[in-house]
Design a protein around this nucleic acid. Sequence first.
DNA 1: GTATAAAGGTTTGCATTTCAAACTAATTGA
DNA 2: TCAATTAGTTTGAAATGCAAACCTTTATAC
Lengths: 110, 110
Amino acid sequence: MSENNVFKKIRGLNRTLHEPSRLAIMTVLASCESADFLFLRRITSMSKGNLSSHLSKLEKEKLVDIRKTYEGKKPLTIISLTNNGKKAIKNHWDQLEELKKQSSDWKPEF
Amino acid sequence: MSENNVFKKIRGLNRTLHEPSRLAIMTVLASCESADFLFLRRITSMSKGNLSSHLSKLEKEKLVDIRKTYEGKKPLTIISLTNNGKKAIKNHWDQLEELKKQSSDWKPEF
DNA sequence: GTATAAAGGTTTGCATTTCAAACTAATTGA
DNA sequence: TCAATTAGTTTGAAATGCAAACCTTTATAC
């Protein structure tokens, strides 16, 4: 059995990115320069609490930047991908595509 | 914002299948008529406990069949996909491919 | 003014999940 | 017969995911 076989690679997927809610957030952000909290909330239909905690996790791992600013006097939270985050989310989707291909080619050895 | 947008679909991915270890198990089985416990353990490099509990979960959800037999006097556990499981894992990979495409086409509306 | 509600998030606490270490039970080897 | 191996299951601790409750500021009604 080759080291780094396709199934080990599947197991090795980055779980921070792979979790569906965060995959959705990161994928939105990959198409936007930036997005505010409400926009993310609407487009993903996540609860505030859930969105907030996923964003915190992504921020801790340096995948997104969170800028707290004001629009007039209302607080406004702007989220964008870090350079790291941009690479990571692109890479994740590319890996998934590659793994799908590789696994459909694989045959057991007897 | 269209109902059932691509990001809601990402969030809606089946978590039983999406979790990397189970995705690996299901993907192996999609290429094999059946596999025994040890084979799955080796090819995914999972610990016994971990493999066992993931298999239980997959069995509960009727995605795999687990047959306990003997090889001589040694117990042997044979795992295979149910028909449901076959459809589900194929569908999951197809969805991932489709979501990657759809999300790369998406642009925010202003 | 002063309740009253709304906007914009964060924190908290619980339920679920994931994982490997510890356990069980049967078999083989010395 | 005693130790080691094989083949798995159970257990318990840690991490995760989620929404309800909470907080703070701003707009609205009276």
